[in-house]
Simulated scan of single mutants.
Amino acid sequence: MRAPMKKLKIATWNINSVRLRIGLVCRLLKEHNPDVLCLQETKCPQGQFPSSPLKELGYTHIAESGQAGYHGVAIVSRLPLNQIAVRSFCKKQDCRHIAAVIGEREPIIIHNLYVPAGGDEPDRTINEKFGHKLDFVAELEHWFGNGSVPEKHHGIVVGDLNIAPLENDVWSHKQLLKIVSHTPVETTGLTAAQKAGNWVDLIRQHIPPEEKVYTWWSYRAHDWELSNRGRRLDHIWATPDLARRSNGIEILREARGWTQPSDHVPVMATLKF
């Protein structure tokens, strides 16, 4: 009989092409040892995920939902992954969700999500991408309120949700109110989805809302670190039972300065059992 978990360390990272940055993925796994790593924007066709170097590091359980060139999500784990499932949103088969269950005595369902970015213009009447994003989040709200976590399971939602919901999740609340990712219609929608599932925001459970927190810095910045114009687009949420077991959160800011980095950095949460 497998011994119960003593702790669980789960990480999420928009890797922005897993084949291009597999070396960075390996570095994260070696240096920080998460039990589970959820990746978004893998940009990898199904069946071509670079699993060999990950399996050599002991991450032998991999679930992926990929397509050529765009989107894509994956779960990489040292723990067995059961009941692997994908969900399509807005009637699009665009590989933005994958779920798996870990644990036996206290099963946890992990939802790994990549919410649409929404384009540049925050007006659905002229920007179809923005409309898609709003519809996606509205569908999340309905689903979270109606069975995203099976009975007798704990639940975790991780991923690049592409929305910075709080004032201090962006470098300037006032200047970004009309910028996609922080507009009121987006932040209101994401907050409604969070409340529908009774999800606890683990980053803000450990870091007060009064403090600035970012997980993304644009490639367009000449010196991202000096300008520090970031946004908190990457999230880890948990059901209240799991949130009570959360004893730490890490935002690996230094990864933004690694060679050929993603514009997002890993976020990691540790839970005690």
Rank of each mutant, 00 (worst) to 15 (best):
A255S: 13
P50Y: 04
H153G: 11
A238W: 00
P107H: 09
R27P: 01
F273P: 00
I179H: 12
R2A: 11
S181H: 15
A99P: 00
Q194N: 09
H206V: 12
V115E: 02
T188Y: 02
R105H: 06
H61Y: 13
E186I: 05
G72I: 04
D263K: 03
R229T: 04
A221S: 15
K195S: 13
K212E: 13
N247C: 14
R232T: 02
P53V: 04
H206I: 10
W237S: 01
I84P: 00
L28V: 13
G58D: 05
I249Q: 05
Q194G: 07
I156C: 03
W237K: 01
L233P: 04
D135K: 08
L271N: 01
W216E: 10
A255L: 08
L190K: 01
L39Y: 06
I109Q: 11
E139M: 06
A138D: 13
V185C: 09
D223K: 11
L271S: 04
L24R: 08
R245C: 14
F144M: 12
L271R: 01
K129V: 09
Q205V: 09
L242P: 08
S88G: 02
Q46Y: 10
N168K: 15
E210P: 00
A164P: 04
I22G: 03
K129F: 12
E64V: 11
T187V: 09
V180S: 10
A85F: 09
T42Q: 07
P80F: 07
R245V: 08
P4H: 10
T42K: 05
S181N: 14
F273N: 12
G131I: 08
Q194L: 13
K178E: 14
L28C: 06
Q175I: 07
W13K: 05
H142T: 15
I75D: 02
Q260W: 06
S77D: 02
P165K: 06
P116N: 07
H235C: 01
D123P: 05
A238P: 11
A74D: 01
D160P: 07
R232G: 07
H61A: 04
W237H: 08
H154N: 13
K92E: 09
E211G: 01
I251G: 07
A74W: 07
V25F: 14
V115H: 00
N146H: 15
K195R: 11
W171I: 01
D234R: 06
T187S: 10
R21G: 03
E225A: 15
R220G: 04
W143R: 07
A269D: 12
H61R: 02
L20H: 14
W216N: 06
S52L: 04
L190Y: 06
A100F: 13
W171Q: 05
H132Y: 14
S51N: 03
P150E: 14
E186G: 14
H61N: 08
E31H: 03
V158F: 06
A63S: 07
G257E: 08
I75G: 06
I98N: 03
K212Q: 13
I10V: 15
E41P: 02
M1V: 15
